[in-house]
Simulated scan of single mutants.
Amino acid sequence: MRIALLSYSTKPRGGVVHTLALAEALAALGEDVTVWTLARGGDEGFFRPVDPRVRLSIVPFPDAPGESVGERILRSIAVLRSAFTPEAYDVVHAQDCISANAVDRCVRTVHHLDAFTTPELAACHERAIVRPYAHICVSAAVAAEVRTGWGIDATVIPNGVDYVRFATARRSLSRGRYVLAVGGIEPRKGSLDLLEAYALLADPDVRLVIAGGETLFDYREYRARWEKRAAELGVTPDVLGPVAHDELPSLMASAAAFAFPSTKEGFGLAAMEALAAGVPVVTRDLPVLREVFDGAARFASDPAGFARELRAAMVGPDPEPGRALARRYTWTAAAERHRAFYRSVSVSRTSRD
C-alpha cells in the first residue's frame, strides 16, 4: 500500500511523535509510507532523525508576524492542501484537524477532543470529525466520546511506546531530586493545578521541572497567570522549554516522579514513557487515564490530591508494574493493526463504490 500520514507540524508534540513512530513501524513492515507536514518557524526537518525508509514531504510554512490563531489555522489548511497530492496514495491518514481539513477524504485519528472558542478552530475541529470516511481512536474512552457526540463508531488502536529507549536511559543526579512534567505550560496540561500542588508539596529538596511547550496556539495570557501565581506562592519551577530528543530519556529517567495533570488526553504517551523509564506516575483521574494506567499509576483530582500522591509516589516506588504495562504497547503491534484497518476500510469503500 502507498500510505500518506499527515501532520500539522515538525515540532515534538504528542501527535507528531505518534505520526513518526507509526510511519517508521509501517515502513518496517514493508509498506510504502510518506509523511506530509508543515515546516513551521523555518524548520527544514522534524525534531529528530526519521528512518530513511519513510519518505518525507515537508511543506514550507513561514511565520506571518501579527497573524491571529484563526488566520494561522486557515493558512495552514490552505498551504497543506495546495501542496498535497492525494492521487499518489491508496490511504490518506490525517492525525489532526488541520491535516484532515486539508484533504477531502481520509482516515482520521482522533487523539482527543477539545472545546475550542476560536471560531476557525472550532469549525476545523468539527469538519475533521464528520468528513473523514473512517476513524481511529487511541483509547476506548475517546471512542466513546466520539460515539456519544457524533454517532460515529471509531476503531480503537492504542499508541505504542519506544520502551527500550526509555527503559535503558541513564539516570543523572546533576539536577538533584525533581518532579517532572512534559508538555509546557498551557490550560490542557493542567499547569496551574500542578503549580498549586507543588506549593502544597512543600519539600525544599524537590524541584518542579517542566519540559516541552511547542504549540500552534497562543498561551501567553495563561502563562502570565501561571507566572503571577508562582510568584504569589513563592515557588520557582525550572521551565526548560523544548528538550532535545536525545536528552529527554535521561531527563525522564532521572525524575523522582512524573506529574501528568492534563485535563484532556487521548492516551497519555508521555506518562507511558515515564513508566518505561521506571519513574512513578501521578495522573489526573480521568476515564481515559484510568483505562490506560489503572494498576500502574496513582490518580488525583485536585492540587491537594496531586501533592499527596506525589509525596507517596516518591517513597520506595516499585517500577515493575509500570514497566510491565509499557512493554505491552509496541509500535509494531500498532502498525500491524493500522495496516489491517487500512485494508478493511479500502475493501469496504470499494464494495460501496
Rank of each mutant, 00 (worst) to 15 (best):
D218W: 09
D285K: 12
A259S: 07
D51P: 12
A4F: 10
I129F: 06
S301D: 13
L286D: 05
V16Y: 13
V146M: 04
I136S: 02
A255C: 03
V92E: 00
S174T: 13
E227C: 08
A134E: 06
K189D: 05
L325H: 07
R284Q: 00
D104L: 11
V281E: 03
A211V: 05
S174M: 08
D32Y: 11
E24Y: 12
A300V: 02
L26K: 11
E31P: 07
N101R: 03
L6M: 13
H135V: 07
D104M: 04
R40C: 09
V130M: 05
G160I: 00
E87Y: 02
R343C: 08
P317S: 06
G160H: 01
V107Y: 06
V235F: 07
H111C: 03
L192N: 07
V156R: 00
P261V: 02
S57K: 15
L240V: 02
G234Y: 07
R81C: 00
E309C: 05
A211L: 04
R323P: 08
P319E: 06
T350H: 12
D353G: 15
A140N: 06
V142I: 14
G184Y: 05
R352W: 10
D302R: 13
G183Y: 10
A276R: 01
A335K: 08
A100C: 07
W226A: 05
D90G: 15
P237T: 01
D294F: 04
G151N: 13
R311L: 08
L74T: 13
A27I: 10
V103N: 07
R165F: 04
R165W: 04
D246N: 06
V146W: 02
E265F: 04
A141T: 01
V347F: 12
L113K: 05
R165I: 03
T332M: 10
T109S: 12
